[in-house]
C-alpha cells in the first residue's frame, strides 16, 4: 500500500509563487498536523476545553448575527422570532466572552507563549481586543434609547481624539457596517490565524513537562531535541512504559 503521507519537496524545485507558497505551507503545516486525529494525553483536562468553547460560541454569534442582519436592525422590536434571535445573539456573546476569559486565564497561568508560541499568544490577545471592539459596536446598533445614550456619550470622547469625522458612532449605517462586516472579518481572520498557529506549534504542554517528553511536538521539540517537528502523537501503553513522564501526565490529566 503506498504511503499517503505528503512529503513537501525542496523549495528550490518550485518555479512559481503558487508552488513556493504550497511548499511553504506544506512544510509548516502538513495535512496530518492541520487536521490531527489525536492529541497528547495532557490535553485531557477541562482547562483545554475553553478555547474550542469560545470558537463554538463564535459560530453561534455569527449565525444569529447573520439572521439579524438579513432582517434589519429594527426587526427584533416587532417580531417575537426576532426577539428570540436577538436574545440568542446576546447570550452567545456572553458565552463567547465567558469562555474566552477562562481560556485566557488558563493559558496565562500555563505560560502558553513558551516553545515559540509568542505569535499564538499575541494573536489570541488581539482577537480578544477585536472581540471587545465588535461587542462595543453591537451596543451601538440596538436601535433603542440605550444605543442612543451610549452613542452620544461616546461621540464626545471620539471627537476629542480627532477621529469622530471618520468613525461616527451616531451614524447607524456606518456603525452597522462596522458591526456586521468589518469587525466580524477582523475577528474571524485573527481567530483563524490563531487556530492555525496552534496547529503549527501544537497545544502547549503543562509547565512542568519534562523537556525529553516524547509528546512535545512542534517547535518546542525542535528547540529541545534539535529534531524535525513532529505532530503530537497519542500515548500508547508501550510508549507510556518507555517514558515515565507520559505516565505522570496521564495521572495529572485524570
Amino acid at each position: 500500500m503506498p504511503d499517503e503521507k505528503v512529503v513537501p519537496e525542496e523549495p528550490e524545485r518550485w518555479s512559481t509563487w503558487t508552488g513556493r507558497a504550497r511548499g511553504w505551507m506544506l512544510k509548516r503545516l502538513p495535512p496530518d498536523r492541520l487536521l490531527p486525529e489525536d492529541q497528547p494525553s495532557y490535553v485531557a483536562s477541562w482547562i483545554y476545553v475553553f478555547g474550542m468553547g469560545a470558537i463554538a460560541s463564535l459560530v453561534f454569534v455569527i449565525g444569529s448575527g447573520i439572521v439579524l442582519a438579513l432582517n434589519g436592525p429594527a426587526w427584533y422590536h416587532v417580531s417575537a422570532l426576532g426577539h428570540f434571535v436577538n436574545s440568542a445573539h446576546l447570550w452567545s456573546v456572553e458565552l463567547l466572552f465567558l469562555t474566552m476569559v477562562v481560556h485566557l486565564w488558563g493559558k496565562y497561568w500555563m505560560a502558553a507563549w513558551r516553545g515559540g508560541r509568542a505569535l499564538t499568544w499575541m494573536t489570541g490577545a488581539i482577537s480578544f481586543f477585536a472581540s471587545i471592539g465588535a461587542a462595543f459596536t453591537g451596543y451601538l446598533v440596538q436601535t433603542n434609547f440605550d444605543s442612543q445614550w451610549i452613542a452620544f456619550e461616546a461621540k464626545d470622547a471620539l471627537n476629542a481624539v480627532g477621529i469622530g469625522a471618520w468613525f461616527s458612532v451616531t451614524d447607524l449605517g456606518q456603525l452597522l457596517t462596522w458591526h456586521i462586516v468589518l469587525m466580524p472579518l477582523a475577528v474571524g481572520a485573527i481567530v483563524a490565524l490563531h487556530v492555525l498557529l496552534v496547529r503549527v506549534h501544537g497545544v502547549v504542554p503543562p509547565i512542568d513537562a519534562a523537556e525529553s517528553d516524547a509528546q512535545l511536538g512542534g517547535s518546542a521539540a525542535v528547540t529541545v531535541a534539535e529534531e524535525p517537528p513532529t505532530a503530537p502523537r497519542p500515548v500508547t501503553e508501550s510508549a507510556a512504559a518507555a517514558e515515565p513522564a507520559l505516565v505522570a501526565h496521564q495521572e495529572v490529566a485524570r
Binding site: 485531557a44 483536562s45 482547562i47 476545553v49 475553553f50 485524570r254
Partner: peptide, 12 residues
C-alpha cells in the same frame, strides 16, 4: 469554571 476546570476529572 476556572477552578472547576483545574480539579474536575476529565471524561475518558
Amino acid at each position: 469554571l476556572f477552578v472547576a476546570a483545574l480539579f474536575v476529572p476529565f471524561l475518558h
